[in-house]
Design a protein around this nucleic acid. Structure first.
Lengths: 340, 340
DNA sequence: TATGTTTTCCGAAACGTTTCGGTAAAACCG
DNA sequence: CGGTTTTACCGAAACGTTTCGGAAAACATA
């Protein structure tokens, strides 16, 4: 492999000057810069990442740490994340390191170890929890990172997120405006920050609309078909007052809800109205539901580019204001809601 | 982060001696070695991967390069590979770098660039083609690698593979032994080395059994439900003599074949016998078919550990003989084959 | 002409590690 | 006891890069 020394020798220049030419520093003659770049290309030169990292602190490598679990290979969400982020970083000439923790391995020591090796420039943090300790940890360690979502009181770090509070508010208010008063919310796993924030939007809309807050209608759990199914069955059995509408945290939940309602002999939207948030995971189209599903839509696919942008920016030391981004969502009214 | 210098200062030793103690070299007092290791742990020391790579050529990082394509996020196989390998390497304290090529980007320059950065110790090569150029390229570059499969005339590199030739032979011979003479083979995409090798086994068994070789019964294509379905329809329409048995390259193909046969009003195994090779991808169980499917079984899941083993071994310079491994497969007879 | 300024270059140090060659001191040997 | 071997240590160089502090040459200013 060609090194700076090789190029310097070939051009009868100093290593210093070659380095400065390649890195577009100011004090190098324009013609020299061109000559250097030309021979660098000709000699197939690529800067040695280790050497560069050692002295400048930059290696161009970023990491994603994910907990392992049985059947992670079948988790659509995980695949989307990995494929999306990896594509983004590869496209920027950066390296994407995927670290899978052993099941039940604690997270912070894993980050600690990776940081200790000093080969990563930063991390992408997905799936933040309320008060996620990783954020504090990385902040203290002084490493760059970007969060997919927001967590904690002081949001003084780069992130990409959507307005989950407002989105839950919109979905709820849409139902309230149509006369619904007992509105169920099939939310995600308690503790995840977007789940908490959506809960706030849901409650705010209920209160704004003067609707009752019935705790037994607010359910938490994994957002898959199975939970949509069993949660719906639970809502419509027992003594407690039954909902006239259901909000689903995602479309997979809605899928289960539709199945359960059909099984219970209840029609959508005649007996029960249903709305959902749509991450637009492929292979599950809300518009293809019958009746088609009213949703707030924010494709998850649109997250990877801004996330990579923000992390790259953070590593380059860009100002924080440019590294905090909010993705848009759209409200799409279809045929799954009826007025009471 | 603590460095060797810090430890040396704390113990009033030289950096040299600390390094040698930590790396279990011979000429260091046993008691000193223990003291050094203890303080290293206490000071939370982790060797700087960049510095180490720079001087010793080892970084503990390996790469996987995959071509990107639409909907890769939904490719079960891809995710199994990534999740499996990543877990294996993470568990060995190695780093796993996932590089996604842009669609239609040529492979060799990508490897070239990654090699140029000199941060990877080796590569895992999946999905080798007949005469795969990557193998030659990496061999010439002098980098360690392990191939999932075998390709080319001279197999003088580390690999993990199963006996695809014999497996295709077994499936075919099983049918021949039961009197079948017109046996179709739904093979994978032409050019992939395992596809070529399976074709050889298929042909050998036909000839050994004195069965006719009918080229129109040997089909190539992606191994998914859709191809299983359309290939079956094609086999049973038109003038050409129809098969009495079908061999499927995997269970997803078999799924499509079952659907197509049902639609055509043909019964398994009454009208048509079906066998397949089973990679045991989750969520598609050959035993749960009706009638249950006769297969050769070799779980893909069992590949990641030997692959990681072999690559790690290659990097450490172990002898080639220990780095060429063959995985077992089992023949499982169920209810999808009838004698003629 | 003397003095500053800009342009363009360079030597040397530094990053953290491994390793080569060397060296005292202790141990061993006949 | 002289000589050899073994033990346990260390200094310095090397890996390839970036960057600091200078410095020669060219040019502008007074």
């Amino acid at each position: 492999m060609a090194t700076l020394k090789d190029i310097a020798r070939a051009l009868d220049l100093s290593i210093t000057q070659v380095s400065r030419a390649l890195n577009d520093h100011s004090d190098v003659n324009e013609e020299t810069r061109l000559r250097v770049k030309a021979t660098a290309r000709a000699m197939n030169y690529h800067p040695n990442a280790s050497a560069r990292k050692l002295v400048s602190g930059r290696s161009g490598m970023v990491g994603l740490v994910v907990p392992n679990y049985r059947n992670i290979g079948q988790d659509r969400l995980f695949m989307e994340v990995v494929a999306g982020l990896s594509t983004q970083f590869s496209g920027r000439g950066m390296q994407f390191v995927l670290h899978m923790m052993a099941e039940h391995e604690p997270a912070l020591p894993t980050y600690q170890r990776l940081i200790g090796k000093a080969m990563l420039d930063g991390f992408v943090l997905i799936d933040p929890q309320d008060q996620d300790p990783r954020i504090d940890f990385l902040r203290k360690a002084g490493l760059s990172f970007v969060v997919h979502g927001r967590s904690g009181k002081t949001i003084d770090y780069p992130y990409f997120d959507i307005e989950n509070e407002q989105l839950a508010y919109d979905l709820t208010a849409h139902l309230v405006a149509r006369g619904h008063r007992r509105i169920a919310f099939l939310n995600g796993v308690a503790g995840r920050s977007y789940v908490t924030v959506r809960a706030q939007g849901y409650l705010r809309a209920l209160q704004d609309g003067g609707a009752e807050v019935l705790p037994h209608l607010h359910l938490h759990g994994e957002m898959d078909e199975a939970h949509g199914l069993t949660d719906t069955v639970r809502l419509f059995s027992g003594e407690a007052p039954r909902p006239t509408a259901i909000i689903c945290g995602n479309v997979r939940l809605a899928q289960g809800v539709y199945q359960a309602l059909a099984a219970l002999g209840l029609s959508v939207p005649g007996d029960v109205s249903v709305v959902a948030h749509d991450d637009e995971l492929p292979a599950l189209r809300a518009s293809a539901f019958f009746p088609s599903l009213t949703v707030t839509k924010a494709p998850l696919r649109d997250s990877w580019e801004p996330l990579a942008d923000c992390l790259a920016g953070a590593i380059e030391g860009k100002p924080l204001a440019t590294l905090q981004r909010i993705g848009r969502y759209t409200f799409i009214e279809r045929n799954s809601v009826a007025a009471l």
